[in-house]
Amino acid sequence: MAFAAFASTAAPPTDAPPRRRSKVALLLLLPGILYLVLFFLAPLVSLILTSLQAPSEFGDIGMYSYAFRWENYVAVIEQYWPHILRSFGYALIATVLALAFSYPLAYFIGVTARRWPLLQSLMLVLVIAPFFISFLLRTLAWKQILSDESFLVTSLKAVSLLAPDAHLTGTAFSVIFGLTYNFIPFMTLPLYTTLERLDLRYLEAGNDLYASGFHTFRTVTIPLSMPGIVAGTLLTFIPAAGDYINASRDFLGGADTQMIGNVIEANFLVLLNYPAAAALSIILMTVILVMVGVYVKRSGTEELL
């Protein structure tokens, strides 16, 4: 399945012993199965049921009863399609930017820095270091840095790179910037793990067979690091599409940058329109599953994993 893409270190089980379908194996699996049923399957069923609910006939606001109101889906798509499109658009741009930033970084750490193990470890620590601070705080810090009174914005205005009445916060730029920034480690680490194992002798073979550095990169290095690219883009794209912190008005977003996550949050917590929120969640999940499925199939990484 698509999520096998995450298991980039899994070795092909060519000489694994034949499977034994014993009771012991079933017993060992039981806690995991129970956990999944309890905390994944049950909430999912509940979410689907909620998404089909109708308002109670004599109830207050936020009172719903079970029904089969599939019109909920049509209604939320009609009302929120700009947010849905914007979410996937922002997530896509952020993923591409994060990849463009992380690939050279991961290549440097995993390939160029091989000769200096100390530098390699240091750079890895630096990639992971932001995790030591809550990402809410980091995003708030960026809000400060990008705010209208900040040194950055006043300087940009002083040299006329920014119009006098322009803002950085509350724009698509700051939201995509925040998404890119926050997910760079999730992109860099899987890329690093595949590039770190890249056998440089393949690159020599490419050079020997008349391929220049650029051609070798395109025809050998990129295909061989595809598992890392797939894992990194999935780890970035999926959470970024559903993210509601960066786009929130309290952080880097504004009224025109609301993403599907913000809409779901508002419907659940402010408007108390549970069926609409649930329907949006299901739509988000389905679209991501389909996109990821197509992506993994098309990138042809199944056999490299």
């Binding site: 393949y202 073979a205 020997d208 067979l209 051609h215 295909p223 490299l304």
Partner: peptide
């Protein structure tokens, strides 16, 4: 000249066949 410009080909000890 760079390796890719030379009229030379190598059979590598590790073969180095492209796995993909």
């Amino acid at each position: 000249q760079k390796a890719y410009q030379r009229p030379v080909n190598t059979v590598f000890q590790s073969y180095a066949l492209f796995p993909h």
